[in-house]
Amino acid sequence: MKILAVCQSGLGSSFMVQMNVQQILKDENVDVDANDITVDHSDVGSATADSADYFFVESTLADALGSIPKERIVLLKSLIDKKETAEHVNYVLDNENIAHD
């Protein structure tokens, strides 16, 4: 499974979300290697439907991701609220039947 954090330039804030997601996976004791989970970041322009399974994006950018199915887009109200990101990560893990704490 691949999670892609997306922001406008794909440099700063998406990278921060990526690092947060990776930290959360670690905190939740998810076996990243066994479940083949990768986390990456990119700009909106490069994000296409086949580049990841889930797209984490700040909510005001939702409409710029027009070509990606809605159910695979995870909208973040706040990019700095780790609790909110953790809720979304847990939802994705449950959806994919991946064990976590």
Partner: peptide, 29 residues
């Protein structure tokens, strides 16, 4: 960047991360 962050947060207690500009966009779209 992760290396810098890892080292910095270990060496500087109570540090505040200065983050990229879109973090404030959701506060006032």
């Amino acid at each position: 960047v992760p290396a810098f962050q890892g080292i910095a947060t270990k060496l500087v207690p109570n540090s505040k991360p200065a983050l990229d500009v879109p973090i404030i966009f959701p506060y006032a779209p």
